[in-house]
Nucleic acid binder design. Structure first.
Lengths: 220, 220
DNA sequence: CAGCGTAACGGCACTGCGTGCCACCAGACA
DNA sequence: TGTCTGGTGGCACGCAGTGCCGTTACGCTG
């Protein structure tokens, strides 16, 4: 008897959080393998079928909304001023995803513990990180076209950025995982700037190419 | 009636290849979702139960032997001369995995096409790459202890190496995916050397620390 | 050569994930 | 009040993955 039928947009987001909390709590208490999807749905007060309308699978029940994260990054790249140098742009894009992981620190800590402990969740997280990496690679490749070994630089930079993001999250967790630690986490992430092969040196040819690229982008 | 019972070590490797070939061919011909494990096992002439003694799951049926790849990398790091600089050591370790992907170019090409097309296989591959990345991160972290931001450098370098490895494989595939293209693939991979934050500059302190590290390693 | 231990195989049954299908119910609108 | 729309719950099905056990081939030993 669909007591929740005709749910509003806010109601959907609310139920999503309820399901995540139920999944995290059950996985933590009874273990991932010993918790069925029925258990999670029942704990959230909905039917099993509804669970699969909010998550593609059991492994996604503890994840932040990666669709939103990917959309945010894409938006940063799309709406950026064409003259903005690649390095700060890339860092800005990376920073927009932190709060997806770090809002609700309590749930975040439990989630990290679970992802670390359960192989299935670890692999799922790795797959999602892979999607972030691919998005960065696409955006950077397009902006490094014409540069010597631009494909390789883009791939390496994208991998480095997501690795640094991950590293920053681990650092945040090691430092207690509190809401106050979030700024320090972002600062730590920015340290990756010195390690990225994105420095446009004083090479005349590179500067010229960059100017042409900006000019083309501004025409559109 | 177990005609294959009591299989020798070579027989096991042989059957593994047969299963991979059967899986690749069936996935290519009928699609991943429309191929059951029973189909693969039957095509290889064994029972369904035997398939799961060779692969942890349906998604692994098209994979190279990653256990072997991880073991090779670990061995390179273990048996390396303690005085060997980190950069060539890391490159050497990465190169040992190419032939796992590139032996039997015919199967390799089909595998790449499948991994590119099927989400489940793409995610599985991403998870495996993640394991390689973690191994590199562990080894590099241990060797960068004491260095400024050693953890971050290790994580970034590891991510860059596996990204470059992937990039080289894509390049090989784009160049036709022939056995003759393998050397060029390795050459392309080595280009990552210039992008890695591993350069031990002429800084006196760094050199001293490196010498102490080598001395400690040699004592054991 | 006969007997025996080991290791891999095949079959069976079982749990649980993920999905297609359909009936149901709530709110919007005419 | 009738109808349309969208989210929900229940049911049933296919198949992945696993535990268990009987069977069969190979190697070792006497």
């Amino acid at each position: 008897m669909g007591k929740r039928s005709g749910r509003s947009a806010e109601g959907r987001a609310e139920l999503r959080r309820d399901l995540v909390r139920a999944a995290v709590d059950l996985f933590t208490a009874r273990g991932y393998d010993d918790t069925t999807v029925d258990d999670i749905a029942a704990a959230a007060g909905v039917g099993r079928r509804t669970f699969f309308r909010y998550f593609a699978g059991k492994e996604d029940a503890v994840s932040p909304d990666h669709e939103l994260g990917l959309a945010r990054i894409a938006e940063v790249f799309e709406t950026a001023h064409p003259a903005e140098p690649l390095l700060p742009l890339t860092l800005r894009a990376g920073e927009t995803v932190f709060d997806l992981y770090l809002s609700e620190p309590d749930t975040a800590r439990k989630r990290f513990a679970l992802v670390h402990a359960v192989p299935a969740l670890r692999d799922r997280e790795a797959a999602m990180v892979h999607h972030y990496r691919r998005l960065f690679t696409r955006e950077l490749t397009a902006r490094l076209s014409g540069v010597e070994d631009g494909d390789l630089r883009a791939a390496v930079t994208a991998a480095a950025v997501v690795a640094a993001h991950n590293q920053a999250l681990r650092r945040w967790l090691a430092d207690g995982g509190t809401a106050e630690g979030v700024p320090a986490c972002v600062v730590h992430f920015r340290k990756v700037a010195d390690l990225l092969p994105l420095h446009e040196g004083p090479d005349l040819e590179q500067v010229t190419r960059r100017l042409e690229q900006v000019a083309r982008a501004l025409e559109r």
